[in-house]
Design a binder for these strands. Structure first.
Length: 275
DNA sequence: GGGCAGGTCTAAG
DNA sequence: CTTAGACCTGCC
């Protein structure tokens, strides 16, 4: 067990705002989360995170990266509230919220599945994939499953993906798996290019539109300057600025929130969805 | 039973 | 280049 000090972090809010699909809330109010290579269990007590894992190697650093603990969000929030006073009540509600840094391949697959889908179904499909193809971890005599790697999915068929309730998205996921395995899609390369290029790189693939690509870059690559505009953000923008069409919404977000757009949008998502 | 859920693809103008 | 329809699935 390790303890990590965390200031201005709210685990509950951050984990329940839809950015991560695979987690379990335990009876003691802790959360169990499968990461790329291990299972962690996290509980927050004030400004201390109590973290357990089946693998404590480098655990503190991994948790800090996962929850973006070393980034000072107060600084962003201050600038944003000065730029746009409409954000003040939203940011006030989102105190302690952090953008998670998730496994990149898992993020790509999960957000392709998210298109025109609901959270219950998304979680169900991602869990089915993990149980069937992910590495099993036994910890404290419980069974957990990591999200599968592209390599471990190399022989999956469209029919199997259909049986995991991916629906019309099966063919998209199938293509991403194969192109990742053939190195046509290079997840490390995306790290090296700027956000605009990375968006163009991702939207070439079927099933990845601007929204999904933005989520991949926000949660898989920590690019705060993307803006994944979904139904909730649209509703917030309509409420605040009376605009409906994507072009106007994009323009306002880009001009007002700039390099922090991704964070603002996540705040809006949280604000509107829980209203 | 129709509508909807963190959109995207496709065909048509 | 822009835009309306269709789309798997499960749950309300």
């Amino acid at each position: 067990m390790i303890k990590i000090e965390c200031n201005d972090f709210n685990l509950d809010e951050s984990i329940n705002c839809g950015q991560i699909f695979r987690f379990n809330k335990e009876s003691d109010n802790s959360y169990t989360i499968p990461l790329s290579d291990r299972i962690i269990n996290v509980k927050q007590e004030n400004n201390i995170l109590i973290v357990n894992s089946n693998d404590e190697n480098n655990l503190e650093d991994i948790v800090k990266v996962l929850f973006d603990l070393d980034t000072d969000y107060n600084e962003f929030n201050k600038v944003l509230m000065e730029t746009d006073n409409k954000l003040i009540p939203i940011i006030d509600k989102c105190k302690g919220f952090k953008i998670f840094r998730l496994n990149q391949f898992e993020t790509i697959i999960s957000y392709i599945i998210s298109a025109n889908n609901n959270v219950r179904n998304i979680k169900n499909s991602v869990d089915l994939l993990s149980i069937k193809y992910g590495e099993k971890v036994i910890w404290n005599s419980n069974e957990y499953y990591l999200f599968p790697t592209a390599h471990s999915l190399k022989s999956i068929t469209i029919e199997e993906l259909n049986s995991m309730k991916l629906g019309f998205r099966s063919k998209y996921v199938y293509e991403i798996i194969n192109k990742t395995n053939s190195n046509e899609i290079d997840l490390n390369y995306i790290e090296s290019i700027d956000t605009k290029e990375a968006l163009e790189y991702l939207v070439k693939y079927k099933g990845i539109g601007l929204k999904v690509a933005s989520c991949i870059l926000l949660f898989g690559y920590g690019r705060y300057d993307v803006f994944p505009i979904d139904t909730w953000v649209k509703k917030t923008m309509t409420e605040f600025y009376g605009v409906n069409d994507m072009k106007s919404i994009q323009k306002i977000i880009n001009e007002k929130y700039g390099k922090y757009s991704g964070i603002v949008i996540q705040y809006m998502f949280h604000y509107k969805r829980n209203k």
